[in-house]
Design a protein around this nucleic acid. Structure first.
Lengths: 233, 233
DNA sequence: GAGTGGTCTAGACCACTGG
DNA sequence: CAGTGGTCTAGACCACTCG
């Protein structure tokens, strides 16, 4: 039996964490079931459930019906990255945001793009290249393919003023997709656009956005030298 | 009033999502309170609460007491990356895992490291460099600093057999910390260790791990050419 | 089959915070 | 101050899955 009042799911969670930390419950161990814990802690089972479920979401516990709850053997590390709108990211850093459209054309995408976006072979798409600047210095190249179905030809003119990055956030909310982080050497064109040396190591984010299987847009963001993504675990 | 039976928090969530999608509830809009929705859906308030709370966690809703629940104006994109143990990551890709310790020494860390780890000026730390291979090819360099308080001198010998990456996961569970993704050019040493060209663009993950403010370890993972991190949004 | 977690309900009280 | 979300309770039934 334990002394403190366990009358909130947070306090239950802390107690469970303490037992994992102190190795009273070791990785792989089966811990008591919810009903027993509820009795021990003097609270409702739902409260215990909330606490354990939260810890399971964070990857510290493995729960299965009938099998019970175990301390995760390999606490899966999860890092959650918040992907901001570029204009906001630059403003948050205290720099003045700038935007320039480099090109916008409706063409047949290369197969690597149409494969990712799962377009038909002969479908045209809107290709847009633009650059975002911070205090006048190049910050990131946005190289984007747009499914024309989602953006009318008239709408395209908007991209003289506002970046696709920003426009999409407000006009095509809640989408699913994949995101990839990688590194690449600056080609000559990229070096020119970003005012850096050819061959310089650049950080790249590629993102494909879908709405129920149908690709909306696929973008490659090539960041200036020294850029990094950062978060807490 | 709506027809389907809303008898699970998932079905409530779907209905709410549908309304956001259809723009019946637009970004910034105040949506009805939990009690009203519960009545409309014919379920308990707790069920509505669970659904809305989940959507708020995912960043689609903003909820505040008294102020009510609003559709998020800038649906914050969150990407959750799962950081696996390197051995497992390589095995999952179907390659044979290999490990080699390059060096292990107890020395005074450079100031950039002691700053990050918030060590005292004159505290020594364990510096370990090792390499992980996939099918015999270099996969990633692990360059790590360890707070000696967490690993006894005798334990150090274990690192001839097993990587610090793996050892730490099982021996120092549930820690907090920061993680950074970036790109860098391969130095001569790194190029040799990874069998790549000097100047090649490499993907880098830096991670510092703490247990209640106290730094346990700080690691820099320098991946081979072409490596990328990938996840779904 | 039986034990465990997953969830729903109805009601209640509390904590926060906007007006 | 009053309305809203946050949470707890006690009880119930269900769904999954291990043995």
């Amino acid at each position: 039996m334990t002394d403190p009042p366990f009358n909130s799911w947070q306090s239950v969670q802390e107690e469970v964490l303490a037992r994992i930390h102190s190795r009273q419950w070791k990785p792989g161990d089966l811990i008591p079931n919810e009903a027993d814990l509820a009795q021990e802690f003097g609270c409702a089972r739902a409260t215990v459930n909330r606490a354990l479920q939260n810890l399971a979401d964070e990857g510290l516990l493995d729960r299965r019906r009938k099998a019970g709850t175990r301390v995760a053997t390999h606490p899966v590390r999860k890092a959650t990255m918040y992907i901001p709108v570029i204009r906001q990211e630059i403003a948050d850093k205290g720099h003045e945001y700038g935007y320039e459209l480099i090109c916008s054309e409706r063409v047949l995408p290369p197969t690597e793009v149409s494969n990712i976006m799962e377009f038909g072979r002969r479908a045209h798409a809107q290709h847009i290249v633009c650059i975002h600047t911070a205090d006048g210095r190049p910050y990131v190249i946005e190289d984007r393919w747009l499914n024309p179905k989602w953006v009318s030809a008239e709408d395209m003119s908007i991209f003289n003023e506002i970046s696709p990055n920003e426009w999409l956030v407000t006009h095509v909310p809640f989408t699913e997709g994949e995101i990839k982080f990688s590194a690449m050497s600056a080609s000559k064109t990229e070096a020119e656009l970003l005012s850096c040396e050819e061959g310089e190591a650049l950080f790249v984010i590629e993102r494909t956005t879908r709405n129920k299987q149908e690709a909306i847009t696929s973008v490659r963001l090539i960041f200036c030298r020294g850029y990094r993504v950062e978060t807490t675990i």
